[in-house]
Design a binder for these strands. Structure first.
Lengths: 241, 241
DNA sequence: CGGGTGGTTGAGCTTTCTCAAATAGAGTGG
DNA sequence: CCACTCTATTTGAGAAAGCTCAACCACCCG
C-alpha cells in the first residue's frame, strides 16, 4: 500500500521506474498502531522515517495547561517525519488519531537512495517544504480567519489532499476525527467547533457527521474559506534542474 | 557580510574550509532594498534564492479583507527563500520591514554546490526544515497562547535567534518593527498589542521602545511564554550520516 | 510649522471561551 | 435484548479576551 505515497509523489514530479523501485525497496518494516497513540516523541533521536499508509495522524505541540495545538494533519500517503532525516530529532510529537498502518524507512536507506538517485533527494526535500507551506496556511487561519472560516478551510484542504490519492471523490470523504480533534487543529474549543459546524450545515455548505464529510456547495465553501490550493503545489509536474 | 549566515550554519553543523568557500562563491550579486517593499511575490518562478545580510524581512499571507498574517520573521543571516530551490515558486510573499541588504544565490549555483559537497545539500535541507519548526511553534502561539504570552514568546525567540549572530547581547537587541508588525506576527490588533506591551512593561519583564527590546527578567519572560528553545535546534553541532 | 507615521487610551461590542448539563450512540456484560 | 458505561455531541448562559471605532498625543522630517 505504498501506492498512495507514489501517487502523492507523482502528483508533483515525474519519476522513473528505477526511482519508483528504489522507493519501494526502501521500506524495512511494516507496523500497525492503535488510535490515540503518540508514536514519535519530541527530542528522541530517530534513525528511520515513518510513512503513513492507512489512517490519520497529526503533529502537535502542547502547553503546560494541557492546551494542545495540532500543527498538521497527516493522511494516507504522507511521510510523517521525513524531516527527521535532516533534523535527527523532532521538535514536536506525532500521534495517531485513528488506527494506522505505517511503513518504516531507515535513514540509511534514504541516504543511499539520494546518493543513487539525486533527483529523489530533491523530491524528498520538496515534500518537507510542502509541510512548511501547509503550516503557513494554517498560521493564516489561526491568526486571521474566523472560526467558521477555519473549519471551512480545513475541509477544503483535506478534500484537495485526499483527492490526490482517490480517498475523496464526489464532494465527499471519510474523516474519522472527533470535534475535539477539529478544535485542536483550528485553535477553537469543542463547544465552538460544534456551533460553527452547525452554522456550516445550516448554510448548506458542508456536513460533518459520523466520520463523513459531505460538501454540498464547494464553491461557497471555498469562498467562505478563501481557499486557494496553490500552497499545495498540485499544478505539477515540476521539472528538477 | 555573509559571515552572519556562516555563523548560523556553524551553530548547527561543522563545515570545512572548502565548503565555506563554496558558500561564499555562490553569491552572484548584492542588492539593497528600501523598507516595506515586497521583494518576492507568490507564484513567480524563481531562479535564485535571497540571503538576508542586513535588516529585517518577513513572509506573509493575507486575506481579501486586507488582514495580514506574518508567518515568520527573517533576520540577518537567514535565507529568505532557500525553499524556492526545491519549490521553484513560493506560496507566500516576502517583504522588507526595514531597509535591507541581500545577496542573491542562483539556483544553478546551489545545484552545483550540492553536487560537489553533498553535506551542504543536507545542511541546506536542514535550514528549510528549521523554518517549518518555527512555523509550528507559531501555530502553537496563534492557536493556544494568550496575547501577552504570544508577544513574550516572540521576544524570546528573537533574542535566541539574534544571539547566534551576536546581534543580541546582555538581554537586549535592536528590533526596528512597528507595533503593527508585531500584531501581524502574533495575530493581534495593534491596539491589543499596545496594551499587552504595556502589561509586559508593568510586570517588569520586557520593554519594547524606539526599536529596542530590553529584557528585564529573562526567566520570568520565558516562564510566561513557556519558551523552550529546542525547536531552534541550537544544541548542535549535528553529525551528518 | 505642518503633515505623516506610529503610539496610547477610552468605550462599547463581538467572538470565542468556560462552566454546566442534557442528549445521543457505541460497545459490553449479564 | 437490556441496563450500564463511556465517549462524543449538543445546547444554554454568563464571562472574558480581544476587536472596532474614535480620538488624542508624540515625534520626526521636510
Amino acid at each position: 500500500m505504498i501506492e498512495r505515497h507514489l501517487m502523492k509523489v507523482r502528483a508533483r514530479h515525474a519519476i522513473s521506474d528505477a526511482e519508483e523501485q528504489a522507493i519501494r525497496n526502501s521500506v524495512s518494516e511494516y507496523r500497525s498502531h492503535k488510535a490515540d497513540q503518540t508514536i514519535i516523541r519530541r527530542g528522541e533521536r530517530l534513525h528511520h522515517s515513518t510513512l503513513l499508509l492507512e489512517g490519520l495522524m497529526c503533529r502537535y505541540k502542547d502547553l503546560r495547561s494541557g492546551k494542545r495545538q495540532i500543527s498538521e494533519l497527516l493522511v494516507a500517503g504522507d511521510f510523517a517525519d521525513l524531516h527527521s532525516f535532516p533534523l535527527k530529532r523532532l521538535d514536536h510529537d506525532i500521534m495517531t488519531l485513528t488506527p494506522c498502518e505505517v511503513a518504516l524507512v531507515p535513514h540509511a536507506h534514504i541516504s543511499d537512495m539520494i546518493a543513487c538517485f539525486p533527483r529523489l533527494g530533491r523530491i524528498f526535500w520538496f515534500l518537507t517544504t510542502l509541510d512548511a507551506a501547509v503550516h503557513r496556511e494554517w498560521e493564516l487561519s489561526l491568526g486571521q480567519r474566523s472560526g467558521i472560516a477555519r473549519l471551512a478551510h480545513l475541509f477544503c484542504e483535506l478534500y484537495a489532499r485526499l483527492q490526490i490519492t482517490k480517498l475523496a471523490e464526489n464532494q465527499s470523504f471519510g474523516l474519522d476525527l472527533t470535534q475535539t480533534d477539529l478544535g485542536e487543529s483550528t485553535g477553537l474549543t469543542v463547544v465552538h467547533v460544534n456551533r460553527c459546524l452547525k452554522e456550516l450545515r445550516t448554510q448548506g455548505l458542508v456536513t460533518f457527521q459520523s466520520g463523513q464529510v459531505t460538501i454540498h456547495d464547494l464553491t461557497g465553501l471555498r469562498r467562505l474559506a478563501e481557499f486557494d490550493p496553490a500552497y499545495l503545489y498540485l499544478d505539477g509536474p515540476y521539472e528538477i534542474d
